[in-house]
Simulated scan of single mutants.
Amino acid sequence: MKAYVFPGQGAQAKGMGANLFDEFPELTNKADCILGYSIKELCVEDPLEQLGDTKFTQPALYVVNALSYFKEIQSSGVKPDFVAGHSLGEYNALLAAEAFSFETGLMLVKKRGDLMSQARGGGMAAIVNSSKEEIEAALKENGLNNVQIANFNSPKQIVISGMKEEVEKFQPIIQQGRTIFVALKTSGAFHSRFMQDASEKFNTFLQGFIFANLNTPVISNVTAMPYKNGEIVDNLSQQITHSVRWTDSVDYMMQQGVTDFVELGNGNVLTKLLRDIKKAK
């Protein structure tokens, strides 16, 4: 069985999608109209150095992921048995399952990026070679109550999120022996309770859309289980404040018989995580 998986924030890089925009001129033009700027120029040249700003990162990744998917379908004609995406990438999974059109998905992502970019004072860091239990115990013992786990990326990599000063205080505490602390470039405490305001505003925005029933199982970041019809508004709202359960999502698909995972989009972030998840089996 085959699954298509789509990366999220962190996969962006100047030059991404360079070979795609001219192949899909109609969709590229639609993206420009929705966004109010040239998506090709942003992704390929990034003249104003905006690609690292979540307000621009999210639409850019969504478009490149989407065009990558359409090209894959054009060339192979193979529809996947499952689809999943990491954080922002979940919108591309829903697009692939025909929950909404390319244009609707981009409008959702644009709003999501706008709301999340308003978050300030937050920080995130990747913790390598430490477990959930070790991280949570260390946070509790040191009174760092404004930090929580944001992403379960692989058995080797967990991302924390919270108030920036507390995230920074955690580095010398957890970085012992084989454990590595890597600060991430982000202005907000994404996938944490500190995004509640953005989540509520996004929920209100989502109420204005009608979503189709899914034609392919989409694995939810929030539950690590397939979406049920009618859950899109709740899942996408909760995703902003809840942990990304990527390891559990991949485990679920493997248990269903998926052996072929194809990453569509820029880079190979998820391919590397998949390798670590499979190694732990």
Rank of each mutant, 00 (worst) to 15 (best):
G208F: 03
C33Q: 15
I180T: 06
K279Q: 08
T223H: 07
S76Q: 06
G52F: 04
T216A: 06
L48N: 09
K228T: 10
F102M: 06
I173H: 10
N229W: 05
A13E: 15
N235F: 12
I210A: 06
L236D: 10
A212P: 07
L48P: 06
R120A: 11
N29P: 13
D81F: 11
G122I: 07
R178T: 10
L67E: 10
N229M: 03
E136D: 15
F190W: 07
K79W: 12
L115M: 05
Q196W: 10
G123L: 09
V182P: 14
N151Q: 09
E45I: 10
F181W: 14
F152M: 10
P7E: 06
K14A: 08
S161Y: 08
K156C: 12
D81E: 15
F209S: 01
H86L: 01
T241N: 02
M116Y: 03
K40E: 14
G52H: 00
E41D: 11
F170P: 07
Y69A: 04
A150K: 11
K164R: 10
K30S: 13
A13K: 10
A125V: 07
Q255M: 14
F202S: 05
I160E: 08
E165V: 05
A126D: 02
E49H: 10
V5F: 09
A3I: 03
R112M: 04
E49D: 09
F194N: 07
D46A: 08
A60L: 03
L115N: 06
Q238D: 06
L108W: 00
Q176M: 15
N229F: 09
N151V: 08
K14F: 01
D81A: 12
E134D: 09
V262T: 09
I210Y: 11
F70E: 13
T247R: 11
S76W: 01
E168N: 11
S87P: 00
T54K: 04
K111E: 07
E263I: 02
N145H: 14
A280W: 12
G177M: 07
A198V: 13
Y227Q: 01
T57R: 00
T247A: 03
E200H: 14
E98T: 14
I219F: 01
M124I: 01
Q255L: 14
D234T: 14
A224E: 02
L61D: 05
F194L: 13
A18S: 12
V159D: 05
G162K: 11
F24D: 11
T247H: 03
A189Q: 11
E136N: 15
R193Y: 12
G123P: 00
V233P: 02
T179K: 09
A150W: 02
G77V: 03
S249L: 03
T223G: 07
K279S: 12
T271F: 12
F100K: 01
G122A: 05
P226E: 00
Q50E: 09
D197M: 05
D251S: 04
D114I: 09
A150L: 10
R275Q: 15
K79T: 15
V222W: 00
V258R: 01
F100H: 03
N221T: 08
P172Y: 09
A96Q: 00
A137H: 13
F100D: 02
D251A: 11
F181M: 15
S187D: 12
A84Q: 02
P25M: 13
L95T: 08
P217E: 05
E200K: 15
E165K: 08
A18C: 12
N266K: 04
V182E: 15
I149K: 11
E231D: 07
T216W: 02
Q148T: 15
E133Q: 11
K30N: 14
K278V: 08
